[in-house]
Design a protein around this nucleic acid. Structure first.
Lengths: 87, 87
DNA sequence: TATAGGCCGAATAAAAATACCGGTATAGTT
DNA sequence: AACTATACCGGTATTTTTATTCGGCCTATA
């Protein structure tokens, strides 16, 4: 009936996404990239550190545009192992 | 100091994303696609109708995977005109 | 009848996104 | 040495939004 809490797997997934975004930022400062992507530096920092585990689609899209990385690439890399549910 | 309300532009952007996802779903039922993507049917319906304007990145990623569409494609199409800020 | 698909509104807990504060560490300047 | 500026981190507080379930309602079709 309510929104369920994030699972440990979802937390991990968010951390991995953050690591990739941080790596893509390279030597640029958080302030510069966040401003270019139209978000606050605090938000970008929390995404990079995984404290925002399930950020909004358009937030990541804006970041990917600024950082010149592919959204599909990010999604695939962040969700590595599909549970492979048996039929 | 607080999270600002969604702008009309963000609402529109969400609606456009919904339209694209709906089109990609084709003849498949909401229940089938939502289940395959690991979310409730109600949530998918709200995304398609734009009532969830800024869905989570991994939510859209799961949908894009099931529907076999590109996240980059969705992002570009949903945010068509960059404001073209003058230098 | 009844079954399947879809639409809508209310209610709820959890989380996003933001700002502010202090702390740390490094690099450059006076 | 003292000061200044930049950059990053962690916590707190706040409002808005997500994601979910439930119930009802409608339409087509077997």
């Amino acid at each position: 009936m309510v929104r369920p809490p994030l699972t440990p797997e979802e937390r991990l997934r968010g951390e991995q996404l953050g690591v990739m975004l941080r790596q893509a930022r390279g030597a640029r400062s958080i302030v510069e990239v966040a401003t270019a992507a139209g978000m606050s530096a605090e938000t970008l920092r929390k995404i990079e550190t995984g404290r925002i585990a399930t950020p909004a689609f358009f937030t990541i899209a804006a970041l990917a545009d600024v950082l010149d990385v592919s959204l599909d690439h990010l999604a695939v890399r962040a969700v590595p192992a599909t549970p492979a549910m048996p039929t």
